[in-house]
């Protein structure tokens, strides 16, 4: 490791580790950014939820959208797997079904970035205890 001799060097190091630390930093205040939960129960994984999750993480990072992507258990929409729940800051969560990489791309481009609704939204039929 070469020595740090200026503020710029320090910033460089910070930038280099940022990608690694951002996951932890963002978890500190998840409500201020886009939160995505990928249903990763057996049914979800079998239908390709893992690919969707990886795609989401990499794509959001590429487009520089601060987001927290977490995996969760079965949401109960096994017929529509893979399903993901997207919460934009200050908005109600929306659940999308039959998500593949192409659909994920549309969700990011339309809903997450611009708030446009698109096909495939599953009407939410549950309440979350965390919201209470």
């Amino acid at each position: 490791m070469s020595k740090i001799t200026s503020l710029a060097d320090l910033r460089n190091i910070k930038a280099n580790v940022e990608a690694k630390m951002s996951l932890r930093e963002r978890s500190e205040s998840p409500e201020s950014m886009v939160q995505i939960r990928v249903a990763m129960a057996t049914c979800g994984i079998a239908s390709g939820a893992k690919i969707v999750m990886d795609y989401m993480i990499n794509e959001l990072d590429k487009r520089n959208i601060p987001a927290v992507v977490t995996q969760t258990g079965c949401m109960g929409y096994c017929y529509a797997e893979p399903t993901i729940e997207v919460t934009r800051p200050g908005h109600q969560p929306l659940v999308f079904g039959y998500v593949d990489a192409k659909k994920a791309d549309q969700i990011i481009g339309k809903y997450i970035m611009n708030g446009e609704l698109l096909d495939g939204i599953i009407p939410v039929n549950y309440e979350n205890i965390e919201g209470k």
């Binding site: 990608a19 690694k20 996951l23 932890r24 999750m53 990886d54 993480i57 990499n58 990072d61 992507v69 995996q71």
Partner: peptide, 10 residues
């Protein structure tokens, strides 16, 4: 670069 999707802090 693939990103870690989860950190376990012990």
């Amino acid at each position: 670069m693939t990103q870690f999707k989860m950190h376990l802090l012990v």
